Computed example of a mutant assay.
Amino acid sequence: MSDPHPPWGPPPQDNPYGQQPPANPYGQQPPAGSYGQQPGNPHGQQPPASPYGQPGAPYGQPARDPDRRPGTVTAAAIVTMVSSGVSFLLCALLALLIMVARDDLIDAMEDEMTASQRDVFNGDDLATVITVIVVAFAVWCLVALVLAIFAMRRSNVARILLVISAAMTAIVSLLIITSVVSGLTLIAGIVVIVLLFTGGANEWFARRGQQPELPVGTTQPWG
């Protein structure tokens, strides 16, 4: 009669390895989430508020401060201050020359006037008109310079007045465009108008006086 058990091993059992099969073939309880992490997050990290670590700023760049002055506003103010400063110096120099050489200027203008023109006004009146115009332009340049400073300090009223000043400068320069100087002032006026309405300038001026938004669940520091 043959041996019912093979001669090279132990008698057969229900489990050939002599152990009860665990619930997990690797001897560990299955984790709540795959790879031993919390369920819903396979990589074991809390999801950031923004996929790149910064709220509202993709590709890892920091979010732009909405209260930071845009570069276009700064550029508009610089263009205004430079052009107004140069124009003021020219007007001041011209006014000084008129006062110093007023008599010679009057004689030169009367030589150019006809008899009918002399009956209407004389050289002295014309010299006075020219002096008033030059002084008015000099004051205008100073006002534009002050408006540029206040526009940089986020005054929307100064921005509107500065836009009006730049538009008037462009119109006057266009009417008397006979030299390089008037061409430059025409370009400067147009550039200032464009810069004051681009590059986030509208949003920056509109946020003046607004309270910053607080996180949900927080109160005002004085509340």
Rank of each mutant, 00 (worst) to 15 (best):
N15S: 13
P16W: 08
Y17N: 11
Y17E: 09
G18K: 03
G18F: 09
G18Y: 04
Q19R: 15
Q19G: 03
Q19V: 13
Q19P: 00
Q20G: 13
Q20M: 14
Q20D: 10
P21H: 10
P21V: 10
P22Y: 12
A23T: 11
A23D: 12
N24Y: 06
N24D: 15
N24G: 15
P25D: 07
P25S: 09
P25N: 13
P25R: 05
Y26S: 01
Y26D: 07
G27R: 04
G27W: 03
G27Q: 06
G27C: 13
Q28L: 07
Q28E: 12
Q28V: 09
Q29A: 12
Q29H: 05
Q29I: 10
P30R: 14
P30V: 11
P31Y: 07
P31S: 15
P31D: 08
A32S: 10
A32K: 07
G33L: 01
G33H: 03
G33C: 02
S34D: 11
S34N: 11
Y35M: 05
Y35E: 06
Y35P: 00
Y35C: 14
Y35Q: 10
Y35L: 12
Q37C: 02
Q37H: 15
Q37A: 08
Q38R: 09
Q38E: 13
Q38W: 02
Q38D: 11
P39I: 04
P39T: 15
P39H: 09
P39F: 08
G40W: 04
G40L: 08
G40D: 06
N41S: 14
P42M: 05
P42N: 14
H43Q: 12
H43V: 13
H43E: 02
H43P: 00
G44H: 09
G44P: 01
Q45A: 11
Q45D: 06
Q45Y: 14
Q46W: 09
Q46E: 03
Q46P: 05
P47Q: 06
A49I: 03
A49D: 01
A49R: 14
A49Q: 09
S50M: 03
S50H: 05
S50N: 03
P51N: 11
P51H: 02
P51I: 04
P51G: 09
Y52K: 04
G53P: 02
Q54T: 01
P55F: 07
P55T: 09
G56T: 08
G56F: 05
A57M: 01
Y59M: 07
Y59H: 15
Y59I: 00
Y59K: 05
G60Q: 04
Q61F: 06
Q61I: 01
Q61M: 13
P62V: 06
P62Q: 05
A63G: 08
A63D: 00
R64I: 12
R64N: 03
R64C: 00
D65Q: 14
D65S: 10
P66A: 01
D67T: 02
R68D: 14
R68N: 11
P70Y: 02
P70R: 02
P70C: 10
P70F: 04
P70N: 07
G71D: 14
G71P: 04
T72H: 07
V73H: 01
V73K: 00
T74R: 05
T74F: 04
A75M: 14
A75P: 00
A76M: 04
A76Y: 00
A77F: 03
A77Y: 01
